[in-house]
Computed example of a mutant assay.
Amino acid sequence: MASVICDSVLVTGSNRGIGLELVHQLVDLPKSPGHIFAGCRDPGGPKAQELRDLAQKHQGVITVVQLDTDSPDSIKEASNLVESKLNGKGLNLIINNAGVNIPGSLVETGKKEMVDSYTTNVVGPMLIAKNFHPLLCKAAAQFPQSSMSCSRPAIVNVSTLLSSITRCPENFYRSPMYPYRICKAALNMLTRCLAEDFRKDGILVASLHPGWVRTEMGGPQAPLTTAESVSGMIKVITSLTEKDSGTLLDWEGKNIPW
C-alpha cells in the first residue's frame, strides 16, 4: 500500500458500513490525508454517533459534512464548506460511496423503487462530480506534469459486480434486484462519461466493486468484513493509473466487464 493516499478526500455515506470503515482506515494510514471530509445525511442523528466520536478523536483531520446526495442544495453547500476548509487548495479524491439497495423482483418493483434508486445511486454521484469539479481541477493544477492517480486527483464511484451486463446471466437468479442492478449499470456509464469528459483536466474516474460485504446493506451472510473490503479498496485506489480511468474494478484490483 502506498504510504499516503492523497492530501484530501471526501467520502460520502460515511456514517455506517463501508463509508465509516473508509474513514477509519484512511485516518489510520501511516501518512493519512491532511483533510478527510466525511459526508453524511444527518450528522447530528443517532446513526452518526460513531462518526462523530471518530471526528472528535481526530480533530483537525476529519470534518463531518452534512451531505444529502438526494439534495442539490445540500451538495452545493457541502462543496462550499469543503472549499473553505481547504484554504485555497484543491480536493484530491472523492469516493462516492453513498447509495441504497432497494431489492426487488420485477413483480415487486414499481416506479417509486426505480426512481428512488436512480436518484440516490446515479443522480447523486453526478451532482457531486459536477459541484466538486472546480476543486478537483484545482488539485490537478498542482501536478501539471504528473500522470493520473488518486493524488492528481480522482473520483471513485462505488459500484457492484451486479451491475455487469456481461456477468448478469451467472448471478441474476441469486439476486434479481432490478432497481439496484439497473441503476448501478447506469452509474458505470456515468463513470465512463466522466472519465472521458474529465480526461482533459487530468482527473481519473473509475468504478469500484467492494465485494459482498457484511453490512446493513449486504446482510449477515456476506463473506467479507468491512475491514477486509476497505483494506482491499484502499490498495486498489492507491494503485490506480491512467489505464484504469473509465473501468470497473473489484476490491482485489481485478477488472469486471461491463
Rank of each mutant, 00 (worst) to 15 (best):
C183G: 07
I5A: 11
T166L: 14
V27W: 01
E83R: 13
I256M: 13
L248Y: 07
L240P: 04
I155L: 09
L86N: 04
T166D: 15
G104W: 01
K235S: 14
G19L: 09
D197I: 08
S239Y: 10
I18L: 11
H133K: 05
G218K: 10
L135T: 02
E216K: 15
Y173I: 06
K130C: 02
G39I: 07
K243C: 10
K85M: 08
H209W: 13
L135K: 04
I128P: 00
Q59V: 14
T226S: 07
F132H: 03
R181M: 05
A154K: 05
P257G: 08
N255T: 14
A154I: 02
R152I: 12
G19K: 03
T166P: 12
A154C: 08
V65M: 00
V4T: 14
G211Q: 05
L54C: 10
K200L: 11
G110I: 02
S151H: 08
T215A: 11
D197G: 08
G246I: 03
D250K: 05
D250C: 06
V82K: 03
E50H: 15
R192I: 09
K57S: 12
A227F: 10
D197P: 04
P169W: 12
K112S: 03
A186V: 12
E228T: 14
P72F: 04
Q49R: 15
K85R: 14
C183Y: 02
H35G: 14
E242L: 00
V11N: 07
T215Y: 12
A154S: 06
D42Q: 11
R199S: 05
S175E: 06
N131M: 07
M1Y: 09
A140D: 01
A206K: 04
H24D: 11
P72E: 12
T12H: 02
I5V: 08
R181V: 09
V107K: 07
V107Q: 13
L224W: 00
C193R: 10
S117C: 03
R167L: 15
T63R: 00
W258I: 11
D201Q: 09
